[in-house]
Each structure stands twice: as structure tokens, then as C-alpha cells.
Design a protein around this nucleic acid. Structure first.
Lengths: 187, 187
DNA sequence: ATCACCTTGTACCAATCGGTACAAGCCGTC
DNA sequence: GACGGCTTGTACCGATTGGTACAAGGTGAT
């Protein structure tokens, strides 16, 4: 019938928003159709694997974004403290001060965790590893750096939960500032 | 047909486990029937309001448990530090070292948040208030106590997310120990 | 023993789920 | 301008969703 070459590149972020808002099982094809403007025909043409493939590609694109905008800068920053500061700025902007939710965290808590276990683990270990790397350069020993990185990532996830629970973005802002200060404190 | 007086008191915890494992929307009546051993007839006899009422009562029972076992002891403990230590022990046991997930957190992240917004807010504000109360008694000023309590609760939630994401309960144990030390440090 | 009431299993309901089939149409290529 | 290959809308599929109706059966009070 038509040809609108709806590019994957613009569909995947729309899919991401649907999964974020409704979770994996809650993201029905009806919602996906509505959010993307694509009928089932197009959807299954682009993603023959159905919902599962859509979610996999969304998770892959998220991982790519974090790699490009957070993990890599964390590793290549001339000044590790500056790299960490940039990370917190990127996180605040990515999660819209807590209004946006972390899809990977949502998946991890849900029943679909097993389906996407690899992607979930890759995301979090990638983040913790990159941050721990910066912390070592900052002068922390290996064990302390890993532990501190883990604690920081976990606090960000918790901040997203609590922010949504209390429906107050100031929670997120406060939490981010606190973790930032802890992480950037002199070893 | 039968009479088995399946008491509410034993059904609600079973419901809680189903909601925890599958989320609100993911907890289908088929799963609920299987987990409780109760047919639809009994289920809708006990909970005329359907799934929503089941979830509300589960959330209420969770709030009651936390009030009895955590918030109240936190307030009435002769030694505030002992009360806080007891809280961490209770949390570790309740969440089975991170193998169990926080239903309230799961709901807060999901699409059903608006349906249960009141219960979710009550749970978290209750927790933060009680902990902040203990921290004041420990010598922190009002603002610092609130801030520290918020940070502790949020770290516990984040620890649950990360523990499930990495499928490693040691994450939870480490995180809990860290937060405990931060919170119990001399003001 | 009777009776009213509570509990329960089963059949059933419309709506929606994820997914498939396929014809109709648009496109670039020759 | 005809062709072949993508892209798309629509109709359709069986399975499952949350929920209702109700008859059958069990229980306790009398």
C-alpha cells in the first residue's frame, strides 16, 4: 500500500518509551502501534521476532548509548574527576531528573528478567566497570573502587524508584548530588 | 460444593508472592488460582473488587508488617542505634538477602503506579519518617536526618534492583552493610 | 433433621492478547 | 511504462485476559 520508510533509527526510541512506560509484558502491540504509528504489518516486517526482538533491540540501543555517552568518556577522560562529573550530568539529563525510568532496571525487576538476563547483566557490569576504572585512576584501590562504583550505580537505580514512588523529582536531584559528592571525595 | 474456609490471613501472603514474582499486570488470574489453590469462585467471593482489591489488600498487609516490625520498633527502641541495627536485620530477612523483591518498588516503577499511588507513598514516607526519627535521636539535625534516611531507603531499593539484575545476593549483603555503616556512623 | 447461608467448581462471556496471511499499493530500476 | 520487490493496511487466528452467573454442595445453628 504505502512506503514511508520509517527508519529503524527512529522507531527504536519510540519503542523504548513504550517499554519504559508499560514494562515488557504491559507493552501491548496496540500501544506499540499507537506510539510508533506503524501497523502490525510494518512492525513484523521490521521485527520478525515480534515483541521479544523489539525489546532486545531497544536494550541494545540503550547499551550503545551508555557506552558512547558514559562508559567510554569515563575511560578516556584526561581527568578522571571530570569524567565522573560528566557522567552525573549525563545521567541527570538521560533520566530527565528522575521523570524517566530505567528500562533495564524495570526489566530486571519483572518476570521478563530471564529472557533478557544477558542484556541486563551487560548493562550493569559495563557501568560498574567503567566507573570503577575511573575511581582507580582517582587513587582508590581496586576493591574500594569496585565497591564504591557498585554503590553509586545502585543508588541511582534506587533514586529512580523512590522518585517515581513519591512523584517528586527533587528526590532524584538530591540523591544524585549526594552520590556525586561521595564518589568524588578525596580517597 | 465445598467448604475449606481458606482464611484471608493465609491467602494474602500467597497473593503477595504472585504479585512480587509477576508484577500487577503480569499476575494473571490463572497464576493466582494456581498459587492459592482457590478457584475464581472463591477468589471473587473473598475479593469482589477483583485483582485491584487483591493488590490493595496485599499492599495494606505489607504496610502493616513494616509498621509492626520496622517503623514502630524504630520509634520505640530505647537505644536508637539498636533500633536501626534491628531494622537492617529485619530488612535482610524480609527480602531474603535480595532474593525477594520489594512489591511496592515494583508497583512504583510499573504502569499500575497511579492505581496504588497512595499506598506506595504511605509505605515509603512511613519508612523514611521512622528512620529519620531515629537518626534525630542519634544526634543528627532535622534536615540531615531526613536526608540520610531518604538515602538509606533508596539504597535498599537500588540494592534490590541490582541484586536481581546481576543475580547475585552478595550485592545485597554488601550494600546493606555499607548503608548500615553510613547510617550508624557518629554524627 | 431441617434449613438458610456460605463457599466453591464450572461454564460462559466479550475483549484483548501476540502473531500470521495476504492482497493492495508504492517505489526504484531497467 | 512495465516490472519485481519492499512496505503496508486489514482481516483473521487461536489462546488467554479479567470478570460474571449460577447450580451444586457443604456447614452450623436450630
Amino acid at each position: 500500500m504505502a512506503k514511508a520508510i520509517a527508519d529503524r533509527a527512529e522507531v527504536v526510541p519510540q519503542l523504548a518509551e513504550v517499554f519504559r512506560a508499560h514494562g515488557y509484558e504491559g507493552a501491548t502491540l496496540a500501544l506499540i502501534t499507537e506510539a510508533t504509528g506503524l501497523g502490525k504489518g510494518s512492525l513484523y516486517n521490521f521485527f520478525p521476532g515480534g515483541k521479544e526482538q523489539m525489546a532486545q533491540e531497544v536494550l541494545a540501543s540503550i547499551d550503545l548509548w551508555f557506552t558512547d555517552h558514559i562508559y567510554a568518556p569515563l575511560r578516556s577522560a584526561a581527568d578522571p574527576a571530570a569524567g565522573i562529573a560528566a557522567m552525573f550530568a549525563a545521567v541527570d539529563s538521560y533520566f530527565r531528573s528522575g521523570q524517566r525510568v530505567c528500562l533495564v532496571g524495570v526489566v530486571a525487576l519483572g518476570a521478563a528478567r530471564d529472557l533478557f538476563a544477558d542484556a541486563v547483566k551487560t548493562y550493569f557490569t559495563g557501568w560498574i566497570d567503567a566507573l570503577a576504572h575511573s575511581l582507580r585512576r582517582l587513587g582508590h584501590d581496586k576493591a574500594a573502587a569496585r565497591h564504591m562504583a557498585e554503590q553509586a550505580v545502585l543508588a541511582i537505580q534506587g533514586a529512580l524508584v523512590l522518585t517515581r514512588a513519591l512523584d517528586d523529582t527533587r528526590v532524584f536531584t538530591r540523591a544524585l548530588a549526594t552520590v556525586r559528592a561521595q564518589v568524588l571525595a578525596k580517597p
